[in-house]
Design a protein around this nucleic acid. Structure first.
Length: 228
DNA sequence: GCCAACGTTGGC
DNA sequence: GCCAACGTTGGC
């Protein structure tokens, strides 16, 4: 079924840290308030990052772009390898079948949104945490009490054009000062999260961009009309 | 390849 | 439970 060379690249085996059931996850209790709010929120739209370019980590290629998802059986794959508690919680507790997400290309020449995917299977144990040969093996996780979770996603379609990070950032900055739907978008307020929620307003606004010209044409090198 | 930002670990 | 040291993410 779903292959498993997803990315959302991550760390290697972690130290054993046990004691409390969820040891580790309270480590970063920065904004307890914000996190509580998040726990109680319902989201239906997401942004999921993956690396489209080859990059070898511990001898394993971490590449998994939207073109790779398309090639999977049923154009469906499990989103394994996420090793961040916040992202884990979203996949384990919040993502539901039928939710839509943007497939975001990270760690590449021009990062940005390449397409749309759909959640087709809700949170279940990420098998790669139990396999020593896997990049994201976690010796502290037990089969009867998995620490890491993943979902299955299915390719829906490419966006009509690539929506680059620089373009999104320009809009985000504008909305921050003048107000607008992307004023607080997680892509910039939680830049390092690989799985993040979007409000429907954020999602709809971004999606509408595919019907417009890029704010700054220099941000979309691929799409220059070159003929004639 | 660099490095800022931020998450995690572990000593105290 | 604080916080310094360390590790990772990911843009640039």
């Amino acid at each position: 079924m779903a292959r498993d060379r997803k990315t959302a690249r991550k760390s290697k085996a972690k130290k054993e840290v046990n004691g409390s059931p969820e040891a580790g996850e309270s480590a970063a209790k920065k904004s307890k308030v914000a996190e509580k709010k998040e726990e109680n929120s319902t989201y239906t739209r997401w942004l999921m990052k993956s690396e489209p370019d080859s990059r070898i980590e511990n001898g394993i290629d971490v590449k998994f772009g939207i073109e790779d998802l398309k090639k999977e059986t049923n154009q469906t794959a499990c989103w394994d390898g996420v090793r961040n508690y916040q992202a884990r919680n979203f996949m384990r507790d919040k993502m539901k079948k039928g939710h839509k997400a943007f497939f975001y290309h990270s760690n590449c020449k021009v990062p940005g949104i390449a397409g749309i995917i759909e959640i087709v299977k809700e949170g279940y144990a990420d098998h790669t945490q139990f396999d020593k040969k896997e990049l994201h093996f976690d010796s502290s996780s037990k089969v009867d009490k998995p620490k890491w979770f993943m979902v299955d996603v299915k390719f829906v379609r490419m966006t009509k054009r690539f929506i680059s990070l620089p373009e999104l950032k320009t809009i985000h900055l504008k909305h921050k000062t003048e107000g607008g739907p992307l004023a607080n978008v997680s892509l910039f307020t939680k830049a390092r999260l690989s799985v993040m929620p979007l409000t429907e307003a954020e999602y709809d606004f971004i999606l509408e961009l595919e019907n417009t010209d890029p704010v700054d044409k220099s941000c979309t090198p691929e799409t220059t009309p070159s003929d004639t």
